[in-house]
């Protein structure tokens, strides 16, 4: 029952979802900090001439987008939870701070 309510809440939040575009350019996430809410989409572009691989090991929002080639886009949906950081598995100096509203 509790799970059903949470799922319904998540679906309704998705109706008001925002798509946050994050470019990966010059080995940097642009922008490098965003404010999101559960249900929002984060779309990663890759404008660099080599691959990136965004991921987070955050407990609530764990994801690994996989190898992302030049010129492609991949996205994830934000789940309920706290703030988290996203890194590139290839270029760990790339950091994206995701702040939960």
């Amino acid at each position: 029952m509790k799970k059903t309510v949470l799922a319904m809440l998540f679906v309704s939040l998705s109706l008001f979802a925002t798509n946050h575009i994050i470019d990966q350019k010059g080995k940097t996430f642009i922008p490098h900090e965003i404010s999101v809410k559960p249900g929002d989409r984060i779309t990663f572009l890759n404008s660099d001439p080599f691959a990136h691989n965004a991921y987070t090991d955050d407990e609530d929002n764990e994801f690994d987008i996989g190898m992302q080639s030049t010129g492609t886009e991949k996205s994830i949906i934000v789940k309920p939870g706290g703030d988290f950081s996203v890194e590139c598995a290839i270029h760990p100096n790339m950091l994206l701070e995701v702040i939960m509203k």
Partner: peptide, 15 residues
Amino acid sequence: IDCHDGWNFTDGSFQ
């Protein structure tokens, strides 16, 4: 420079 980037001539990447 794709990997040996910046003043330290490494971007800290794993390849």
